[in-house]
Nucleic acid binder design. Structure first.
Lengths: 223, 223
DNA sequence: CATTCCCTATGCGTATTCTCGTCGTCGAAG
DNA sequence: CTTCGACGACGAGAATACGCATAGGGAATG
């Protein structure tokens, strides 16, 4: 699950992004409206959190333009003001929920979960599985053939990403972007290295995690 | 045990929330009806305390909509009026109990306990335990391997929070929010410090309270 | 006024992750 | 079928980030 946070106050932004990451989300941050719109337009987020007051392009306009572009990603507005008027303006612009600062993080989290649940029209999957490999996003437990496996954070995130796209090849560029937050290829082979370590732990016989030469990797549904 | 307090008067709200926390509950606060409904809908509370008079969405309507969504969480109404009429309207809307302002906190607490006991149809757990560690929320007694342990208030609250989520990792952000009531301060290491002291007292051999790097901590069910 | 409690700051130790280098493997072309 | 080039695998060491422990001072409490 990937979330975009468009917020100019760096304190709030880092607090929110950090909290989301600790809760198992991938979180991107845009410090102004233009950047936010560009990101929102080019990436498939599961939810976008937008401050109403923003430099360059305010939150309301941002969402209007996003909706004009037929983007239906759920939007949660953040605002310092709590007037009914503002709230209505936000919802009319195409927002799905509204939260007034200051807010408790758990409240933000609850609403994000609610938005995602509503958008996907099904209980949010906390558990990913493919073949005899399972991964629980909440307890962070991973098993292979019923036996628990101990993964490092990067390995965990990578496996989650692969399981989410099980059956379809994912490119290294995609992996770098979603697991490492790199937006361009920095001429590194980290992915290969972590894939290698991951294989040693969850795919010793090399039947699940396949290489797609010149592209990336696939997680195979069949053992 | 988790309780939601929907109350617009910030004085009363903070008074109630603080009291509940000191009594060992986890308490969330919503300042208006909409927020309250959103939270109630997305979180599993053990009891909800709702003021009847609220901005945006009054308490009665809130509970009606909650019940319409098949939520059976026990509801305790708070109200300035004490007329029999109001009381009846509240109970008809799906409330389980009714308390008139001003009220004594001890009375509120007694009713909350009663509601929870009734809902769970078993005496409420006043005692948390995990492995050989036990914690009594009422007497504030803590033991490890049968021997009593002396904890400072912060340590006690933290341990209660961890025990309540035993088996699942809790993020530092969550801990800061629920144990410290911080909304914005990622620039501190208090959590680490108190965890460290707590370990010295209840987990000298480091087998119970585990670190989840980059996230937070887990209390392990097995010693 | 004394005591308890709790936060801040710091340096250290270690888990984790990255870089680098070498070796192996795959696939296309001759 | 062989050869060559490119790409990937993987181990080892270095760099880094993160968490731990401790001390000291300040605030709250009685």
């Amino acid at each position: 699950m990937r979330i975009l946070v468009v917020e100019d106050d760096s304190k709030i932004a880092s607090f929110v992004v950090r909290g989301l990451k600790q809760s198992g989300f991938a979180a991107d941050h845009a410090p102004d409206g233009e950047t936010g719109l560009a990101l929102a337009d080019s990436t498939d987020y599961d939810t976008i959190i937008v401050d109403v007051m923003l430099p360059q392009l305010d939150g309301i306009s941002l969402v209007k333009r996003l909706r004009a572009a037929r983007r239906v990603t759920p939007v949660l507005f953040l605002s310092a003001k709590s007037s009914v008027d503002d709230r209505i303006r936000g919802l009319q612009a195409g927002g799905d929920d509204y939260l007034t600062k200051p807010f408790a993080f758990s409240e933000l989290l609850a609403r994000v979960h609610a938005l995602i649940r509503r958008a996907s029209q099904s209980p949010e999957a906390t558990r990913l599985a493919c073949g005899d490999v399972t991964l629980d996003l909440v307890t962070r437990e991973v098993t292979r053939a019923g036996a628990p496996v101990d993964l490092q954070p990067r390995e965990f995130t990578l496996l989650a990403f692969l399981l989410r796209h099980a059956g379809r090849p994912v490119s290294k560029t995609m992996i770098l972007e979603h697991v490492w937050d790199y937006s361009f290829d920095p001429q590194t082979n980290v992915v290969d290295v972590v894939v290698s370590r991951l294989r040693a732990k969850i795919d010793p016989d090399h039947t699940r995690l396949e290489t797609v030469r010149g592209v990336g990797y696939v997680f195979r549904p069949h053992v």
